[in-house]
Design a protein around this nucleic acid. Structure first.
Lengths: 221, 221
DNA sequence: TAGATTGTTAATCGATTAACAATC
DNA sequence: TAGATTGTTAATCGATTAACAATC
């Protein structure tokens, strides 16, 4: 059983290898990878030993071969179909962000509950009513759901997705989803990230933010 | 010294307490919090003991008081100024996303390198040239930077921010930033999240994504 | 008071790292 | 061959949890 921490590191190794490969490098040692990523060489070797292929003692790892093996292990040696739920500002930015496509994640369906948006076309995808989620997803070409709906609607959407058989979700709302334990939800909760940073800010200077700005009387926009 | 894992849990407790409070509840036990969050009661008590105030043996914790103490400890009992670097699709979606404001994170400056965008006004913030970062940030009302520029530009932007004294950053690009060790960078790398999900997808069914779609001949958009 | 839950210590668990025989 | 680095075992470290005296 590979822990989620380990999976995260595998994804990071693969990204670094891709960069080294682009720079024309062919071989790399666990020591060098560790140095760049601020990890220990032992951890790098232990993680990499999870793939079958091995490094060469005295030499290191062959970069293109290792990258390919990692991609196979992670499961990004092929494309995956993604459904976007929520066609608001954030949803649109995500849809048109080329980074997903470049990594093989293809938006094949978009859903929204707002009649104003339903029927509109983004690229070659027509925005569908959220009530169609179940029937559309039964087609079997969707593997991951990206949820970008308001917080109040998230749990309902997640329930629908689960019942439609989706077990991998990326959730942007600040809500802890309740899902069966074989469903993986990763959170892209941006306020959560900022709140974590705030801790370091306030522990740094004892809590004085430098401006007298008070939460209670901030501007409504 | 509080670990980053602990800080994350504190943020999560606070969010849950807020929800319970909204539901009109007044008291809660470590057992109940643990149950909702799938943690152990012992861990909840240990984490919460970090704040000075204590729970009542036999009763539990007073929800509003605990929430306030947590907010003070995390540093979200006040507002923080945020600079947005990168005024593209994603930047705009972030700027207009009300979730940040609601939690007390205020966008006070926006920067971009594209002359087309510089000078435009979002709400009451004028988009400035990225070369102005240093002088604008010397005003002292910006505490956190949100970076939403293309991957190729991210390290340069981060360097500028560091030299301008910013030590808390949220980075959206799929790039590992090199920063001094007293600078905190949190990553909102969405492709990274999807790649992590892909691992579970492929380990689930042995690697068959269900469609014959091949990465090599996917459509260019 | 009796019942319940706290804060904290000591034990457990899991993850990271040091060390080294194997080997390119 | 000599030097370097691997894969892996055993030791270490840190985080989680069980247990319980204190106490509302």
């Amino acid at each position: 059983m590979i822990s989620t921490h380990t999976v995260e590191r595998l994804v990071i190794y693969r990204r670094l290898l891709k960069r080294l490969e682009k720079n024309g490098e062919r071989w790399v040692t666990s020591r060098k990878l560790a140095l760049i990523l601020s990890k220990s060489p032992a951890q790098v070797r232990k993680d990499l030993s999870l793939i079958g292929r091995m490094g060469k003692p005295g030499v290191g790892y062959n970069i293109p071969a290792l990258r390919e093996d990692l991609e196979r292990l992670i499961g990004i040696d092929r494309s995956w179909g993604v459904a976007l739920i929520g066609a608001g500002n954030l949803g649109r930015a995500l849809f048109y962000y080329s980074g997903f496509r470049k990594e093989g994640f293809l938006f094949r369906a978009v859903f929204d509950a707002d009649p104003e948006r339903i029927g509109k076309k983004w690229e070659d995808v027509i925005i569908e009513d959220s009530s169609n989620i179940r029937s559309r997803l039964s087609e079997g070409d969707i593997h991951i759901a990206v949820i970008a709906v308001p917080a109040s609607a998230v749990q309902g959407v997640a329930d629908k997705l689960v019942s439609a058989g989706i077990r991998e979700m990326l959730n942007f709302a600040p809500v802890n989803l309740r899902v069966p334990e074989d469903v993986h939800v990763r959170s892209a909760d941006l306020a959560f990230e900022l709140e974590n940073l705030a801790f370091f800010l306030s522990s740094r200077d004892g809590g004085n933010p430098g401006t007298g700005d008070n939460k209670k009387n901030r501007k409504r926009v």
